[in-house]
Design a protein around this nucleic acid. Sequence first.
DNA 1: ACGGATAGTTTCCTTTGTCAACCAATAATA
DNA 2: TATTATTGGTTGACAAAGGAAACTATCCGT
Lengths: 152, 152
Amino acid sequence: MDQKMIDIYNLIQELAWLFGDHGFNGECCGDLTFIEYMALKKIEASDQITVQETGRALNFTKSGASKIIDRLENKGYVARQVSPLDGRVCCISPTIQGRSAAAGIIQQYTSYLDEILQELGPAEISNIRSALQLLVDSAHNRADWPVGGVGR
Amino acid sequence: MDQKMIDIYNLIQELAWLFGDHGFNGECCGDLTFIEYMALKKIEASDQITVQETGRALNFTKSGASKIIDRLENKGYVARQVSPLDGRVCCISPTIQGRSAAAGIIQQYTSYLDEILQELGPAEISNIRSALQLLVDSAHNRADWPVGGVGR
DNA sequence: ACGGATAGTTTCCTTTGTCAACCAATAATA
DNA sequence: TATTATTGGTTGACAAAGGAAACTATCCGT
């Protein structure tokens, strides 16, 4: 039983490695780093998000978040815009190029998955999907983390 | 069907984030970075490994690998030793402290998993394990990667 | 209108990894 | 055997990236 948890842990870690920043030979996300890509995804998902919210979502300080957004902006993938409601806050939104870059990355990985999973039947694939979903949901349902706090 | 692949991709990415270098508030692995921890795991797994092999296993250049091993050595987790067969190569091996540090990290994550998965029954947990296994095996059975080559 | 709070940016600093040059040891060849 | 090429590893200069703290601009409460 405990062994099963250890297995799960090691497997997750292996996946985290394979699909993280170093797995795909450093070229994990086109001209984006893994972190920049995650930020772009968050920005896309909420369609209007502030600098600090982006940072909070990704466990970065606000200065770190500001710089990540700088890089995305320099690449033309997001745009800053002063909020009409509050002159201090920046509304970050994805540009057309940003959306299409993200779509391209998803496309690329999806076809990679298609390829490596082609041996499997649809039932097995469904099963993988729901197992992952269960895992991610369980992790999100926990407010805190194994070590330290989340605040920053 | 394609949507299912996209789901799987996004879920893996979420997991990669949660269990990667930034997920746990930066404190992912005690006094080790994610990368250092992965290197320690590789070193532990093979019990005798060279600097370059470590680098190759983790997609780092040899100088990068050398420095990662420097840091592990400074922390007292691995030891360098000149190979008796070839005076050029370094045999890296984990120290007692290295083994116990790795065990501690595994312990910590395992109990975290225990906690977040406590709602689930043993059958569901078994299912998660085998789904992850299937995924990781499928990825490893592919020699190459979605973009670029592996060589360095 | 003024003092405190809040969102972002910028500057300085540390960490990390690559590239290229280098050293030492082995292998190959004349 | 002497010499040259190759290979494993380390080192130094450099660039990228993110945190802390100082700074700017705006908003809110009195």
